[in-house]
Design a protein around this nucleic acid. Structure first.
Length: 420
RNA sequence: GUGGGUGUAGCUCAGCUGGUUAGAGUGCCGGGUUGUGGCCCCGGAGGUCGGGGGUUCAAAUCCCCUCACUCACCCCA
């Protein structure tokens, strides 16, 4: 019989790694709370239409990456490839704007995209999403980025680069798009096959092509920022101004475009210098048209997504730093001592002290080795002799010293001695 | 979907141009005085050499197919 394995691009997150994940989540919850952002939990399965309408029919995600199937009721369902559409759906479904003019939400969970896995990219991956809905004020954009930067440095990341751009709006982007197309007319032969295709489907994407010849051609192309309408320009200027107030360093990257249709105006990314091609830890932007696209009123929104796996892989601390070692190991010899140790171990656990023992009746040496391996700072040694004399040996593993303790009120005695 | 790399012990890997019972380090188990860890020493368990087919007297090693993993492209977090 063949062993059954996890499916391609789906990963188990094992102990040692999960502690790191918990740490990241705790930090997120703590910092987001300071900024008034509340958690929303969303289904991971949605009607397919939510994504085809929200993300855009012609995007790669919708065209070839979604896990879509028909359920037993013949309804088309999709494992969510991203969270923003779901957040807006929930926002509209529960009329959240009625009770709160500015709604600030975060959610953490798995996303699914059927791509070829590689470093920093999986078919099931996790994101931390934050969405602020209801106001178009550039201060919202700025504080969102401020919070993102603070969070990333709180989990220990450094050498990060914040890149920002403005993508314009439905009023000013079309003109830019036209200009780019006519700029590229006659230069098609210099473009890579992908970009020639993009010229028809999504010409703005040519801006972030990595092929050298394309980069050369596009480097002299017109820049979106020169085409912004007054409102978009004003908004972008304010965003930059507020970022500067907070002392957040950023770079303007006019070549940054976003893959999903719903983005407008502010777009941003946090890039790392970690090796590998997938160097974006977080990305986001404003999506003022999305809510209308999903059949709601016209609510402005802005948000970002942090790639959980990418973030965790960059945390400088080692796995061991997150593991909670037992505080005490109980080594017991003989039947009476084992019985005593078993009840004591669990009583100590219930009293809040991480305690381990050995259940397989091994030699003292073997039990000591195990205590050492688990990095327990203390070991309580109980044998037949100790039971009879109503005492035990408490050994300090770091210093190699030990003392005799009475078994009466042993829990209190231990608590007193092994407190960190 | 396209291209490159790699599949040998739980883990990390060595096995050159094919040649006796497939190795190391680490981890695991046990021992080194009768009831005391780490360092050191000794012993032990553990492998369909990813799978299938072929060439050969002989294949972990050469050839073909297949699967998996991995890196990169596309795209994105």
């Amino acid at each position: 019989m063949d062993k059954i394995t996890a499916i391609r691009g789906f990963k188990d997150i094992l102990p040692g790694e999960t502690e790191k994940w918990a740490f990241v989540e705790e930090k997120a919850r703590e910092i987001f709370a300071n900024f008034g952002i509340r958690e929303i939990k969303l289904p991971i399965l949605e009607k397919t239409e939510l994504f085809t309408r929200g993300i855009g029919e012609t995007t790669d995600i919708v065209e070839k990456e979604m896990y879509t199937f028909r359920d037993r009721g013949n309804e088309y369902l999709t494992l969510r490839p991203e969270a923003t559409a779901s957040v807006i759906r929930a926002y509209l479904e529960h009329n959240m704007h009625e009770s709160e003019p500015l709604t600030k939400l975060f959610t953490i969970g798995p996303m699914f995209r059927r791509e070829r896995p590689q470093k920093g990219r999986f078919r099931q991956f996790h994101q931390i999403n934050v969405e602020i809905i209801g106001q178009k004020d550039p201060r919202v954009d700025a504080e969102l980025m401020l919070m993102l930067v603070q969070f990333l440095s709180a989990v220990g990341l450094s050498h990060l680069k914040l890149e920002i751009n403005s993508l314009g709006c439905p009023r000013c982007r079309p003109a830019f798009r036209k200009t780019v197309i006519s700029f590229l007319r006659g230069k098609e032969n210099g473009l890579c096959p992908d970009c020639r295709r993009r010229l028809k489907t999504n010409p703005l994407r040519i801006f972030d092509c990595k092929v050298e010849t394309c980069r050369e051609i596009i480097s002299s192309a017109p820049v979106i920022l020169d085409f912004l309408c007054d409102e978009c320009r004003e908004h972008f200027e304010k965003v930059k101004e507020y970022l500067t107030i907070f002392g957040i360093s950023f770079e303007i990257n006019t070549k940054m475009v976003r893959g999903l249709d719903y983005y407008t105006q502010t777009a941003f990314e946090v890039i790392t210098e970690s090796p590998g091609a997938q160097n974006a830890v977080a990305g986001g932007g404003r999506y003022d048209g999305l809510s209308k696209e999903l059949g709601g009123e016209d609510f402005p929104g802005i948000g970002f997504a942090i790639g959980f796996e990418r973030l965790v892989s960059m945390i400088p601390m080692k796995k061991e730093d997150f593991v909670k070692h037992p505080r005490l190991f109980i080594a017991a010899l003989g039947e009476d001592a084992q019985k005593f140790a078993f009840t004591l171990t669990n009583k100590l656990r219930m009293a809040g002290i991480r305690t381990e023992m050995d259940l397989s009746d091994k030699s003292l040496k073997s039990q000591m080795r195990r205590s050492n391996k688990l990095e327990c700072p203390y070991t309580l040694i109980v044998g037949q002799k100790e039971i009879e004399e109503n005492k035990a040996e408490l050994r300090n593993m770091e210093e190699g010293t030990q003392e005799t303790v009475e078994l009466d009120n042993i829990i209190e005695r231990i608590q007193l001695r092994i407190r960190d």
